[in-house]
Nucleic acid binder design. Structure first.
Lengths: 215, 215
DNA sequence: ACATCAATCTAACAAGTGTTTGGTAGATAA
DNA sequence: TTATCTACCAAACACTTGTTAGATTGATGT
């Protein structure tokens, strides 16, 4: 505690806080800082991979820094905190996923075809650890409480897409559409946990899911 | 490392290792050590609750000790290590769950009734944080690799019950029974993550699941 | 009274956590 | 050349982690 106090005092006298100016994410850029932006995106992608692989808690700042080829402290030139990094990744991933799913179902007229297209795309997203669109839509248990609320809000927004899709299905009245959607989304969102490579392809899995959920 | 070596050597010279004699779990008991056994079971149950709530990694030895009303170091009189504690809980939980599900489907003649009874029981198990039968059948991501294999083995053994149940269902040939079972189990095992209190009762949820999975 | 023993405490250990500080090589701009 | 600014590093901070050693307390048995 005393150490912190000393540091604060010194920082006050010597001026400036370079880090904060950048870590917010808003670039007050010069001419071409394309390199800088790329570096930051690179870090986001690396962190996204690790979060997806090991979860939030099990991924340390030093893990991310290692993979990015730098020291832990240097990361804080690019990010504000581990929490902020995760929230940013999470939001971007959901936005990208929403765009992909919307594009995938755009051409489908029949409601069941729409569902199948959405399932295929969701499986593709969840099982391809190559882009920022990554399977981190769950694992909220390992996330601190203060961030959790915001994450859930964003996820609910994403799941609106599926409320529309399920709403258009000609289901028997005996089936509750809300729990139908919840169960379907749970399966798609956790695909990386139950999918076993080699048995069935992703489209085959999607058509199996639709076969089960179709009535 | 050097510290461990020193400690081992000293334990050898001064005799005895009280802790190890007990932590293994096998009691070389005196007359009535019912109190001691109860204390250990109490610890197991407390730890099981915390593991279920927060996951393996997010639950610290000190958390468990706090809830048990003692200090962290004292826990090691009862357990050998955090990993061993988790494995023991996991195994006991699966054994108890298997017994409960088997008992629940015992009286059912129709295959669909069997499925429904199994679903009801599984939801009861997953959503009642009161006994050692607790929702810790997943979350393997946060578990160290060396333990993971053993946990998966035990879980596969448990899931045999559902292979039999699904095997008895008169499903259309277009549906792959393996993925059917995987999807169903994934939903039941993660019920605590998607279940929202107040909307539907557990038996209602179970009948909805069967309504969706029935063909 | 004395020794034994279960059950706990205190206190530390090494390792790892997120984060901050002050410094610095190298490019860019005046 | 000199000054500025980006992107990093080295080193520490305070804190938490699982785990262990050794001392202590209270009950039990002789």
């Amino acid at each position: 505690m005393s150490g912190v106090a000393v540091q604060r005092a010194r920082a006050g006298s010597s001026g400036r806080a370079k880090t904060e100016a950048r870590a917010g994410g808003v670039r007050s850029g010069g001419a071409d800082d394309a390199v800088a932006v790329e570096r930051r995106d690179e870090i986001l992608e690396i962190a996204a991979e690790l979060f997806a692989e090991r979860g939030y808690r099990a991924t340390s700042i030093r893990d991310i820094a290692d993979r990015a080829g730098m020291k832990a402290g240097s990361l804080y030139y690019h990010i504000a905190s581990k929490e902020a990094l995760f929230v940013e990744i999470h939001d971007k991933a959901l936005d990208a996923a929403a765009a992909r799913v919307r594009a995938a179902i755009a051409g489908c007229r029949s409601p069941w075809r729409r569902l199948e297209a959405a399932c295929v795309e969701m499986l593709e997203i969840q099982l391809n650890p190559e882009s920022l669109t990554l399977p981190i839509m769950n694992n909220f248990r390992s996330v601190p409480d203060d961030v959790k609320a915001e994450l859930i809000r964003k996820r609910d927004e994403f799941e609106t897409i599926f409320r529309d899709i399920v709403g258009g299905l000609p289901l028997p009245v005996s089936i509750d559409r809300t729990i139908y959607r919840i169960l379907l989304l749970r399966l798609l969102n956790t695909a990386d946990e139950w999918y076993r490579e080699g048995r069935l392809t992703r489209p085959e899995i999607a058509s199996q899911i639709v076969a089960i959920f179709r009535h």
